[in-house]
Simulated scan of single mutants.
Amino acid sequence: MFGRKTQPPTVPHTPAISLDKVPTQLVSLAKAAGTSLEKSGLSGQRAAVYLVVDRSLSMRPYFANGSVQHLADQALGLSVNLDDDGTVPLVLFDSRPYPIVDVRLDRYQGVVAQQHTLHGGDRTMGGTQYTIAMRAVIEHYIASEPADPALVIFQTDGTPQDEEDTRLQLMQASKLPMFWSFVGFGPHKVQFLTDLDKMRGRLLDNASYFHAGAAPTGLADGVVYDGITKEFGQWVPQARAKGLLS
């Protein structure tokens, strides 16, 4: 019929790693992540995926009930689509830095509990200082001499003790090819993250905030992936226009 506009076909997303090389337990996650990437206009996009996890004392129940490990699995499923090295650097933080370890396709089950125990378990969980983790990610990313941008999944359940430093760090990081996707745990939204998402003074909007709630494992994987990737899909062309991406 004359005058009817047809929508361009969705470009199928091709994972960075063939699904036949992915552990069976992660295939459904990888497929759900691929669907979200398609919806966000990120078909064919490549990126290094990082996972930052809050190890403050209030996070104790989320380590205990498997919510943190499930997010690590989801991050790896996303990485399958974006990065062909099959690894997600895991950055734990509280009031101090912890060594970065890789969550890998051949070593991912129970890795969160192992690292938590290695660092003293519940008895050593501290405060909440975002910039410790942010600097660790930035240094690791730059040292890797990357060809692709970084998508940083930054999980937390509360406002940091270093609010002003966090704002400054995010502002400075807006000049780098890095996008920060904040994921909130807990019964209430973190107002600081809502404000951070709208913060002015950056080269471009380099962050988003998705609140997963008090029962993150109860959310469909696709909902979580949509929350993580939606604004990343908006950032990519803006970063390219600013010369941050080739």
Results as ranks from 00 to 15, higher is better:
residue 146 P to K: 09
residue 62 Y to S: 07
residue 117 T to S: 12
residue 29 L to I: 01
residue 25 Q to T: 10
residue 119 H to G: 02
residue 235 W to M: 09
residue 71 L to T: 10
residue 228 I to A: 09
residue 76 L to K: 07
residue 125 M to Y: 05
residue 6 T to Q: 11
residue 50 Y to T: 02
residue 151 L to A: 13
residue 149 P to S: 15
residue 15 P to A: 08
residue 129 Q to T: 13
residue 228 I to E: 10
residue 76 L to Y: 08
residue 61 P to D: 10
residue 232 F to E: 08
residue 18 S to K: 09
residue 61 P to N: 12
residue 231 E to V: 01
residue 164 E to H: 08
residue 131 T to I: 06
residue 168 L to N: 08
residue 165 D to R: 15
residue 204 L to N: 06
residue 120 G to Y: 15
residue 176 L to M: 13
residue 123 R to C: 01
residue 41 G to H: 09
residue 183 V to R: 03
residue 149 P to C: 14
residue 75 A to Q: 03
residue 12 P to D: 11
residue 245 L to A: 01
residue 152 V to H: 05
residue 126 G to V: 12
residue 108 Y to I: 07
residue 227 G to I: 00
residue 92 L to M: 15
residue 122 D to Q: 13
residue 159 T to N: 14
residue 115 Q to I: 10
residue 192 F to E: 01
residue 5 K to T: 14
residue 207 A to S: 15
residue 157 D to T: 06
residue 7 Q to K: 14
residue 19 L to V: 07
residue 223 V to Y: 00
residue 75 A to F: 01
residue 113 A to K: 12
residue 28 S to N: 06
residue 137 V to L: 05
residue 61 P to G: 13
residue 112 V to R: 05
residue 116 H to D: 11
residue 168 L to W: 07
residue 78 L to Q: 00
residue 237 P to V: 03
residue 177 P to N: 10
residue 233 G to E: 04
residue 105 L to T: 03
residue 69 Q to D: 15
residue 118 L to P: 06
residue 83 D to I: 06
residue 133 A to W: 14
residue 206 N to E: 09
residue 61 P to E: 08
residue 25 Q to D: 13
residue 211 H to Y: 04
residue 15 P to M: 04
residue 6 T to N: 09
residue 172 Q to I: 03
residue 49 V to H: 02
residue 71 L to P: 00
residue 155 Q to S: 13
residue 63 F to D: 13
residue 181 S to E: 04
residue 58 S to A: 14
residue 140 H to G: 07
residue 177 P to Y: 12
residue 81 N to D: 01
residue 48 A to Q: 13
residue 235 W to C: 12
residue 22 V to K: 03
residue 216 P to V: 10
residue 48 A to W: 09
residue 89 P to Q: 11
residue 202 R to G: 06
residue 65 N to D: 15
residue 81 N to H: 00
residue 106 D to Y: 00
residue 226 D to T: 02
residue 165 D to E: 15
residue 192 F to H: 02
residue 53 V to G: 01
residue 45 Q to A: 15
residue 17 I to W: 03
residue 49 V to P: 02
residue 245 L to Y: 02
residue 231 E to R: 09
residue 223 V to W: 00
residue 216 P to N: 07
residue 134 M to Y: 02
residue 240 R to L: 02
residue 113 A to I: 11
residue 198 K to V: 07
residue 97 P to D: 07
residue 34 G to L: 01
residue 13 H to W: 01
residue 133 A to N: 14
residue 209 Y to W: 01
residue 78 L to I: 00
residue 170 L to C: 05
residue 139 E to Q: 09
residue 141 Y to D: 03
residue 241 A to H: 13
residue 209 Y to T: 02
residue 212 A to R: 04
residue 236 V to L: 15
residue 158 G to W: 05
residue 9 P to I: 09
residue 91 V to I: 14
residue 246 S to D: 12
residue 237 P to D: 06
residue 30 A to C: 07
residue 84 D to L: 04
residue 164 E to D: 11
residue 88 V to R: 01
residue 22 V to T: 02
residue 222 G to I: 01
residue 108 Y to A: 07
residue 55 R to M: 10
residue 53 V to R: 00
residue 110 G to Y: 10
residue 157 D to F: 07
residue 96 R to L: 03
residue 12 P to A: 11
residue 235 W to F: 09
